[in-house]
Design a protein around this nucleic acid. Structure first.
Lengths: 132, 132, 132, 132
DNA sequence: GTGGTCTAGACCACC
DNA sequence: GTGGTCTAGACCACG
């Protein structure tokens, strides 16, 4: 699990962490049953207070995404798989709408935008077809 | 000028307001010389404390985007036009990269993504070519 | 709002507080729009750390029971009225089942139990009919 | 002996176990001389760490409810019968008061409550008279 | 003044 | 070792 925090952002650290964990679950990089780093481990790695990590885990558990087993650690919960699909669509849709809104706002034509998408795709070495 | 605030977001209201004003300037919807609503007007409209609006205007003035003329109000500054182009590219690029990252993460093929872009464009009644 | 904490109980203070607030809402003693004591006030009154109160308020907000208005305080949310009816039935049902289970377990007859209920009702000066 | 644990409750597993054993003794389902499951058996059955079970047995022994005979196991102690009657009344009284309090709080009339008790009794196939 | 977030460090229940 | 709860006290955004 890879989490990057921007300590200078106005978005609270805990929200950044929660959002990134949700993304990894949505992407299938974290699957039901997977064990997350312990509160203390992750706190040490991110140079963050353990309480902050604990709060994130706790919130995600209330959401039904995580599950804690006393004395054993924190795990991706069984319901996560079902939530993942919804979340995936939500995130992609959100990114799409945001992009099209911006393009419209800035007076771009539809074709220019498509060309820009192609270009970024090429830069990022993204093949026309792919199954992750 | 249309601003929408999400009072439940973790992002401070002032940041939300600042960001949206910058977007409008970048989009050319606000141009140098345009007058902004008075602090009190905007505060009333957004149901926000006048202090908050005043802080946003002050910060944007420090950025060089706004200028205040005593007794007349707050206006888009002359430097705004120059800043707009940079900002435009920054925002669009950011939205593009975010979208492609998500698509890659979720195992979408390049063509599927392009199809989705087309679809959203159609939904939003966006013609193939357009100059705003 | 009257809250009593049992610091010797195994049940965490925050849960005790949350449960009692839920009960007051269910009982209609706290109604939508009512303002709760500020975090600091309640913490002082209950001799509890402000963080603990804040956590309770935050959790109840996630549940949809409370609503916070930045800089103004914490209030009973509009959805609380709807939740109250459900909660009311849940609590009463729970107390009933618990009682009947115990009575059965201890070999009481149905009529003996009814007599005990009558007796407790009399002790507590509870009239046969009442509309609160 | 039937014990159900709620691993998601804030109440420690050991308290839940202790309380349920006390209830079974109070109900006469466990009588002086009865042998309890071994620490390991019960731990296995409840999917709980043996240390936890051992601690519960030890605490109940200190209370005078259990006694351990070296090499033979853990048994309900002779004093349990005397404790049972007190406990029975305590538990029943507690459940009664709780119920009447709730009913009063929610504005129920005494007769409505009695009717609800009757209804639950019928649902649970509880005859008007019974000696367990 | 209000609540929100974060750090620091304690004690507890459980494995 | 694990997470859960609580205290203490800081700084920030908002009214």
């Amino acid at each position: 699990m890879k989490i990057k925090l921007d300590t200078r952002s106005a978005i609270p650290l805990s929200h950044q962490m929660g959002e990134q964990i949700r993304r990894e679950v949505a992407a299938g990089q974290l699957r039901p049953g997977d064990r997350l780093p312990s509160v203390r481990e992750l706190a040490l790695e991110l140079l963050v207070n353990p309480n902050t990590v604990a709060r994130v885990y706790r919130d995600l558990e209330l959401e039904g995404l995580l599950e804690t087993r006393r004395g054993q650690g924190t795990f991706i919960g069984p319901a996560a798989a079902a939530l993942a699909e919804k979340e995936r669509l939500r995130l992609l849709r959100q990114a799409l709408v945001r992009l099209v809104e911006d393009a419209q706002l800035f007076g771009l034509g539809r074709e220019e935008l498509l060309e820009m998408v192609q270009q970024v795709a090429r830069e990022r070495a993204w093949p026309p077809r792919e199954e992750a």
